Computed example of a mutant assay.
Amino acid sequence: MDFPVTFHIFDTTVLAHPVFEALGMFIGMRYYFFLKRKSKEKLSFNTSAAVLIGATAGALIGSKLIGNLENPYKLFEHFDFKTIWTNNTIVGGLAFGLMGVELAKKIVGHKESTGDLIVFPLMLAMIIGRIGCFLTGIYEETYGLPTKSIFGMHLGDQYLRHPVALYEIAFLIVLWIVLKMIQRQKKHPSGFVFQSFMLSYFAFRFLLDFIKPRLELVGNLGTIQLVCLCVIIYYIFKIKNIKTVHSH
Rank of each mutant, 00 (worst) to 15 (best):
D2P: 07
T6S: 05
T6R: 11
T6L: 03
F7W: 06
F7D: 03
H8R: 14
F10V: 06
D11S: 15
D11Q: 15
T12N: 13
V14Q: 02
L15D: 04
A16C: 07
H17V: 04
V19Y: 13
F20C: 08
E21K: 10
A22D: 06
G24E: 13
M25K: 00
F26K: 08
M29F: 07
R30V: 07
Y31M: 12
F34S: 08
L35D: 03
K36S: 08
R37M: 07
R37D: 13
S39C: 04
S39G: 07
E41D: 10
K42V: 12
N46A: 02
N46H: 04
A50G: 02
L52E: 00
G54A: 13
A55D: 00
T56F: 09
A57I: 12
A57G: 00
G58Y: 04
I61L: 12
K64H: 02
L65G: 00
L65P: 01
I66S: 03
G67R: 13
L69R: 04
E70I: 07
E70N: 04
P72V: 11
Y73N: 12
E77N: 13
H78L: 12
H78M: 09
D80N: 14
K82N: 08
I84S: 08
I84L: 13
W85M: 15
T86V: 14
N88R: 15
I90V: 12
V91H: 02
G92A: 09
G92T: 08
A95E: 01
